[in-house]
């Protein structure tokens, strides 16, 4: 088990956003968590990354409880996040943004190889290498955020609402890249999405989160055909 979360509670002062979520991700899986706005999806991802402290619960990464470990240490352990709205470093160049992703990893040969691979995946990033990240379009920033997370060769990639604010064509493209990374590269991905249909299509398993509780879980293919899910979350 790569990631195992037990009874996770997350609260902002007095208001509890996540009421005891339990879920897990196996090595090589692409798992999605879907749910409406405000269901607590981003809170869960941020607490996995260590950006939001959980009120209680256990987060096990490769068997080790990481729930009290600071985020920069989790990053070194191989957890990386593609944050909501990309959050690239605006006044740093595209290349510098990618270099930050490599922070703490000193293997020049491997770095070059990773960068070459990423430039192949996202050619625009090579083209815009010396431009400040703030000058990129929303879609390009999202690509940069993905590349910045991937450049370190993570063991677990957390993806937070990657479809938000992107035009439909780009959403498809980004989802295709994620699927490719998972299938061809064996990258373990935990995806959090409002775009339920698209994430059910690429993921193997899915959790449905509703007001801080996991309501359903199962294989994505089965979920897609479940009339309750179709009606409530897919609007079909």
């Amino acid at each position: 088990m790569l990631l195992d979360v037990q009874d996770l509670h997350i609260a902002y002062r007095d208001i509890e956003a996540v009421h005891g979520a339990s879920f897990s991700v196996e090595e090589g899986e692409l798992v999605s968590i879907i749910g409406a706005n405000g269901a607590g999806k981003s809170s869960i991802l941020n607490s996995l990354m260590g950006l939001v402290p959980p009120r209680s619960g256990i987060i096990r990464f490769r068997g080790e409880d990481i729930s009290r470990i600071p985020s920069h240490v989790r990053a070194r352990m191989g957890i990386r996040i593609v944050p909501e709205r990309a959050r690239v470093f605006p006044r740093l160049t595209v290349r510098e943004n990618l270099r930050i992703g490599l922070y703490g990893i000193h293997e020049p040969a491997k770095e070059k190889e990773r960068l070459a691979w990423l430039y192949e995946l996202f050619p625009i990033l090579e083209e815009r290498g010396s431009q400040d990240a703030v000058t990129l379009s929303g879609g390009e920033q999202q690509q940069l955020a993905i590349a910045r997370a991937l450049v370190s060769d993570p063991k677990l990639l957390l993806v937070d609402e990657v479809s938000m604010g992107l035009m439909p064509k780009l959403v498809d493209q980004v989802f295709e890249v994620l699927q490719h990374l998972n299938r061809e590269r064996g990258l373990t991905i935990l995806l959090v999405e409002q775009n339920a249909l698209a994430s059910l299509e690429i993921s193997s398993r899915c959790y449905v989160l509703e007001t801080g509780r996991i309501q359903f879980e199962g294989a994505s293919g089965v979920m897609r055909d479940d009339p309750r899910i179709r009606e409530a979350y897919l609007g079909l």
Binding site: P70, S71, P83, F89, R91, I100, G101, Y103, S152
Partner: peptide, 19 residues
């Protein structure tokens, strides 16, 4: 570079491994 990243976005920087 780590300092610049912190200046730009502290939580994004720390989730890249910058203390």
């Amino acid at each position: 570079l780590a300092c610049f990243a912190l200046r730009e976005d502290e939580s994004a920087a720390s989730s890249m491994g910058v203390s």
